[in-house]
Write a protein that binds this DNA or RNA. Structure first.
Length: 489
RNA sequence: CGGGGCGUAGCGCAGCCCGGUAGCGCACCUGCUUUGGGAGCAGGGGGUCCCAGGUUCAAAUCCUGGUGCCCCGACCA
C-alpha cells in the first residue's frame, strides 16, 4: 500500500532510510554526514526537547549557552578526554576568505591564519570547566546545575541519519558539587529522568546500567546509560550520565573553599541525550506503512478527514469535535485539502504516524457516528460523535500504553541468557539477536576478544543485576554477575 | 581508510555498451469527469545531462583528470 517504503524484512537499513525521508523527518544535505532536519522531524524533536527541558528545570537545573569554538589547548588539559575525541574533531584554522587571483572563486586567505586553532566542540566539558573556574569560589556557589541545548560536531567515519551524524543537536548538562556523594546522586537523578522520559514519553523501554571501563566516556570515572533494543535486535545507547569525579576540576583548577575553610576540588557530572533519540523512536515503533509516533510526542495527535471532501454539514461536526478535543489539550488538525482524496490522505497520515484518524462523511453524519482509526494497530471503529472527545482522550492513553507494552514485550522476548560461548554465537547470529545476558570475567581483554569474534559489545552492567556466581562465557574465569551484550548502533 | 553505487527537469529514474533533434513516471499549470483506501482523460510548462580538458563534422554517450553525495565494512562518548 505505502509506496516506496522498503519492507523491514527485505532490508531493515533501507527501511529506516525510507521512513526518515518519506515521513519528512530529515534529508541528507550537501555536506557529507550532515542532515537537514525537516519541519515535521523538527516538530517531534521540539516535543522531545520541551519535555526534557521541563524535567531538568523541575529538578533545579538552569539553561545557559557556551561557545561553539574551543581553543585547541583546552582539549589537551584532560588526558583521557582528548584521547577520546582527538580523532574526530573539526578544526578552524583561518578566519577570512578572499577572491582567488585567477577569478575562479573564493579561497582561504593565507594571511588570516589563527594563532591558535579553534576546535568545533565535540562536547563542551573543557570550555565549561574553564568557565566554572571563575564562577566557583565557595561551597555557597555549589551545586552548580547547568544545562545547554546545543549542536556539536564529531567527524565520524560513517554516518547514519539521526543515529550518527557529523553535526547533531543535543543537550549537555554539566554540574559541579561539593561532595562526591552529591555528584553521584546527581548522576543517578539524571539517569532517572532519562529512563522516565524514554519509557513514559517515547514509549521506548530501556535498561539502566553502567558502562564497562572500555565503553566509558573519555574522562569519566563512571558512565551510566540507558540502552534500548531496536526491532532488528540491535541495541541503541539512548542516553548517558557521567560521574566525572574530580578529573575536570583538577584539569581546569576548579576549587572551592569549604565550610571548614579548606580548598577542595569540585566534583562533577555531565550527561546528554541527542537527536539520536529520533532514530530510537523510529526503530522502536514504526512499521512497513510508515512512522508511528507515540501520542505524547506527536505534533498532531488526531487528524480529521472529511469524506470525501469538506461540506458545510461535515465542517460543522468537524469543528465542534476539534473544539472539544482542543479543550482537552489534544493536538488536532482538520485536513481540508481539496487537492487530494481520502485514500491519499489516509496513506499520508499513516506514513507520518499520526496516532488517531477520524473520518467523517455524510453516511456517518446520518448515523451520528464517526470512523476512528488507530495507527498502532490499524484498527477502525465506528463511534458516536456524542462524547467522542472523551473516547479519544482515553484512546490516546491506550495507544501510548500499547506502544510501550508492545515494545517491552519485544525487548523482553529478546533477552537471552547463555552459559556457553557456543550458545552465545548461536544467539548473536540470529536474525534478531537482541541482548545476551552472560557472565563475563571483568577484563577488557575478554570484552575485546568477544567483540572481535562476534561484533557484540557489552552494552551495560544492568543496575538491577543480581549477584550470581558463574563463569565467564569465554574464559571460564569466575564472575559474580551477568552483563548484557549486543550488537549496537 | 577499503569495497560498491550514483551525479540527466522540483523528486525518482531511463538513455551511455553501439556518438546523430534529451526522454519516462510522479509533481506542477489548464479543462472536464471523478471522490468511503494513494483518481481518469485531454492539453501544457519546465534541462549549464556534476566540473574541466581531449577525440570527432557531431559528445549525456567515447577517452583522461577532478569533484560531490549515498550504501556496505572498518572506526566510534
Amino acid at each position: 500500500m505505502a509506496k516506496e517504503i522498503t519492507s523491514r524484512a527485505e532490508n531493515y537499513s533501507d527501511w529506516y532510510i525510507d521512513i526518515v525521508k518519506r515521513a519528512n523527518l530529515a534529508d541528507n544535505s550537501a555536506v557529507r554526514g550532515c542532515m537537514v532536519i525537516k519541519p515535521y522531524g523538527f516538530a517531534i524533536w521540539e516535543n522531545i526537547r520541551d519535555q526534557l527541558d521541563k524535567m531538568f528545570k523541575e529538578t533545579g537545573h538552569v539553561n545557559a549557552y557556551f561557545p561553539l569554538f574551543i581553543p585547541k589547548s583546552f582539549l589537551s588539559k584532560e588526558a583521557q578526554h582528548v584521547d577520546g575525541f582527538a580523532k574526530e574533531c573539526a578544526v578552524v584554522t583561518h578566519h577570512r576568505l578572499m577572491m582567488a587571483p585567477d577569478g575562479s572563486g573564493v579561497v582561504v586567505d593565507p594571511t588570516a591564519k589563527l594563532e591558535e586553532e579553534l576546535i568545533v566542540r565535540p562536547t563542551s566539558e573543557t570550555i565549561i570547566w574553564d568557565t566554572y573556574r571563575t564562577w566557583i569560589n565557595s561551597y555557597r556557589d555549589l551545586p552548580l546545575l547547568i544545562n545547554q541545548w546545543a549542536n556539536v560536531v564529531r567527524w565520524e567515519m560513517r554516518t547514519r541519519l539521526f543515529l550518527r551524524t557529523t553535526e547533531f543537536l543535543w543537550q549537555e548538562g554539566h554540574t559541579a558539587h561539593a561532595t562526591k556523594a552529591e555528584a553521584e546522586e546527581e548522576t543517578l537523578r539524571i539517569l532517572d529522568i532519562y529512563s522516565t522520559f524514554a519509557e513514559d514519553y517515547m514509549a521506548m523501554p530501556v535498561i539502566r546500567g553502567i558502562k564497562t571501563a572500555n565503553e566509558r566516556f573519555a574522562g569519566a570515572e563512571e558512565t551510566y546509560c540507558i540502552e534500548a533494543l531496536m526491532q532488528d535486535g540491535k541495541a541503541l545507547q539512548a542516553g548517558t550520565s557521567h560521574f566525572l569525579g574530580q578529573n575536570f576540576a583538577k584539569a581546569f583548577d576548579v576549587k572551592f573553599l569549604s565550610e571548614n575553610n579548606q580548598q577542595e576540588f569540585v566534583w562533577a557530572t555531565s550527561w546528554g541525550v541527542s537527536t539520536r533519540l529520533m532514530g530510537g523512536l523510529i526503530m522502536t515503533h514504526s512499521d512497513d506503512d510508515g512512522l508511528v509516533v507515540p501520542p505524547k510526542l506527536a505534533p498532531t495527535q488526531v487528524v480529521i478527514i472529511p469524506i470525501p471532501k469538506p461540506t458545510p454539514a461535515i465542517d460543522e461536526v468537524a469543528k465542534k469535535v476539534m473544539a472539544d478535543l482542543k479543550a482537552k489539550g489534544i493536538r488536532v488538525k482538520y485536513d481540508t485539502d481539496l487537492k487530494t482524496r481520502p485514500g491519499f490522505k489516509f496513506a499520508e497520515h499513516e506514513l507520518h504516524g499520526i496516532p488517531v484518524r477520524l473520518a467523517i462523511g455524510e453516511r456517518d453524519l446520518a448515523n451520528g457516528q464517526v470512523e476512528v482509526a488507530r495507527r498502532d494497530t490499524k484498527e477502525k471503529m465506528q463511534q458516536p460523535v456524542e462524547g467522542i472527545e472523551q473516547y479519544i482522550e482515553d484512546l490516546l492513553v491506550e495507544i501510548q500504553a500499547n506502544l510501550f507494552n508492545r515494545a517491552k514485550a519485544m525487548r523482553d522476548a529478546h533477552i537471552t541468557k547463555v552459559e556457553t560461548f557456543a550458545e552465545f554465537e548461536e544467539v548473536i547470529n540470529r536474525d534478531i539477536p537482541g541482548f545476551i545476558s552472560a557472565h563475563w570475567d571483568g577484563t577488557t581483554e575478554t570484552e575485546e576478544k568477544i567483540k572481535e569474534l562476534t561484533k557484540a559489545t557489552i552494552r551495560c552492567i544492568p543496575l538491577d543485576a543480581v549477584a550470581e556466581d558463574g563463569v565467564c562465557v569465554l574464559t571460564g574465569q569466575p564472575s559474580q554477575r551477568r552483563v548484557l551484550f549486543a550488537k549496537a548502533y
